[in-house]
Amino acid sequence: MHPAPSVIVFTALSGLGFGLFMWLGLGFPGFTGMAAFGSYFIAYAFSVGGLLASTYHLANRKNAIYSFSQWQTSWLSREGILAVVTLLVFAPVAIAQIFFQSDAWNWLGPIGSALALATVFATSMIYTQLKTIPRWNMPLTPVLFLLYAVAGGALLAMQAKVAGVLILILVALQWAAWMMGDRRFADTGTTKGTATGLDRIGTVTTFESAHTARNYILDEMVHIVGRKHSEKLRMISTIFLGVIPVLMLLLLPANMFVAILALVSHLVGVFASRWLFFAEAEHVVGTYYARG
């Protein structure tokens, strides 16, 4: 799949933003006043920024309001609704904590936390539901999205030791997903033969493509450039996503400087792995185009 910057920024940032909301709703780090303002500013900036980035993926934004209408069948619609509801639910909690040093609305926090997790789950299901992209179409995909959010959120909520442990689990599961993902396409049994129905005659190869120019399908779904460097990018992602932050969080004394460095490294890793998430994903429509 084409690794469009808009969807990479969307899933990475909004995931971290809602991950931070999850911790804020449960009372971590438990700030009030200006410090609380800082936490909520980051949570809103990441989640809203990510959602705004996603609208750059739309070719016809003027109809965007309709995307809240099909929650009965569409994960994309559910994600939009859950995101807006989550952001609204946290508004009174944040206002009370920041401006009135009050915990009067804190009872809404756990509900907001659950909604934040539900939002991330809905985001993950936009991708997981697609049978056409076998690498995404497995139960580990939503688990990973949730873990990215909760681990990154813990880092943003300055829960250093918890974040360190969660990131360790995240890296292990990310590697499991990469290795399982590598086998997914073959497991579905889709080949040029089943795509054309000509496997009942013999071995199918492409004689001539349907078009000499590129088109939307090729640009969007038959992205192959990224796959060449996937091994290297997996290593780079692992180092920035996990190794550096975990060493810093678990071995160094907890302070602001360590937390920020660990966060920057983790962010670089999240973007690299999310780029790979798209770039490595093979769409079954590629079987119509593939040579050989």
Partner: peptide, 18 residues
């Protein structure tokens, strides 16, 4: 239509073009 392209992603046959 908002042109999000998700329907084209979900089609195994490449039948939809934005």
């Amino acid at each position: 239509c908002i042109g999000c392209g998700l329907c084209a992603w979900s089609c195994p046959y490449g039948a939809r073009e934005l």
